[in-house]
Amino acid sequence: MAVGAALALNNILLDLCITGTAEVNQPVRHYFDVGVFGYGACLTNPGEGVESAFGGALAGRGLVPLPELADNPLTVREEPSVDRMAASSMIPIWVEPVHGYRTPMCEAIAVVGDHVLDWAQKHRDSFPPIVINITDGMVTDSPYRGARLEEWVQRLTSIRTNDGPALFFNVFLSPAHAPEVLFPARAAGLPEPGPLLFGLSSELPAPMLENARADGVDVRPGARGLAFNVGRSTLLRVLQIGTRVPGRPY
């Protein structure tokens, strides 16, 4: 699962770089600031914790301007297609798969929240920050620093720009074969930890509802930013829907 998630992340980072390129052979524009954080096993300080997943020239960085991201992949190598149908291709690699230890989700939200708060204070007129949490396990550190997971998420989503609150979406990668659930409008019928993640997930704002419908997803009023039991191709689809905000300045 870590390999599939890393492949989807590298594909969406490449998509963002392409989105930021107005014309062929022109520099990537600063449309986004992007961060990727891993929680569980760490490489910089071996053991369990939370750290930036970027390596190489971007090692240890939190949020990185899109042009700088485009200029500093770890490597370029041949990777299989995410949908497993098309031939493999050469793509830039920014994130390598890492797995192990437990799931310190509260600590991860606390760390990311610090970066989100700093960004929001500097970009008051931008679309609010989008945080997508990809996990394959139950939270293992609630409470953390005296606050439970729900409180950490509430703190995160209380951070605002002039356009609204930060958005918190969740993607659960199940180790078992189970039906995929995409952007549900209610928690009924979801196995654990589905109801918890549903309650934590933000409602999809109007532009993302339009993205989902344009992508052929049947979304109902009140749909939440939750994808449950998804595979790697659906994961990429979710990331694309969750990061396309048409016609907005950054």
Rank of each mutant, 00 (worst) to 15 (best):
V82G: 03
P249L: 11
I18Q: 10
S81Y: 14
A70D: 00
M208L: 15
E79D: 15
Q26S: 14
N11V: 09
P92V: 01
V34S: 00
F198C: 04
Y250R: 12
D125F: 03
P143E: 08
R102N: 11
L190Y: 10
L63H: 01
G242H: 00
S89P: 06
T19K: 05
P249T: 10
I18W: 09
E23C: 08
D15G: 07
D163K: 14
T161W: 09
R155D: 04
P184F: 05
V238I: 09
L236S: 04
H177V: 15
T21H: 03
K122W: 12
L14R: 08
G20M: 04
L74S: 09
A166M: 05
E78M: 15
R244Q: 11
T21Q: 05
S158K: 07
G189M: 09
V238P: 00
D125I: 06
V131N: 00
S158L: 06
V50L: 02
I241G: 04
R145C: 08
A212C: 10
S126K: 07
I109E: 00
T243Y: 02
V98G: 07
A59S: 14
L63E: 00
G137M: 07
L58I: 02
V82S: 04
N11Q: 13
Q26Y: 08
L74G: 05
V131I: 04
P207E: 09
V181R: 07
G49R: 13
V217Y: 09
L236R: 05
I241Q: 06
R237F: 07
L226N: 01
E79H: 07
L182D: 05
A166W: 01
I130C: 03
I130F: 00
V230P: 04
G199A: 07
A214P: 14
L197M: 08
G35T: 04
P128W: 04
I132V: 05
S88F: 13
L9F: 08
I132F: 02
P246V: 15
G49P: 09
G47R: 12
R29Q: 14
E210H: 11
P193Q: 09
Q240V: 10
V28E: 01
R145V: 06
G194A: 09
P46A: 12
G38L: 01
D125A: 10
R148Q: 08
V34T: 00
E151C: 07
T234C: 08
L43T: 12
E51R: 08
L7A: 15
R145F: 11
L173Q: 06
I93Q: 04
G4K: 13
P92G: 01
A108V: 02
R248A: 12
A120C: 10
W119Q: 03
I159S: 02
D71E: 10
K122Y: 12
E96I: 12
A53H: 02
G199C: 09
E23W: 08
L235N: 02
N162D: 15
A5H: 10
V82H: 04
R77K: 15
S89T: 11
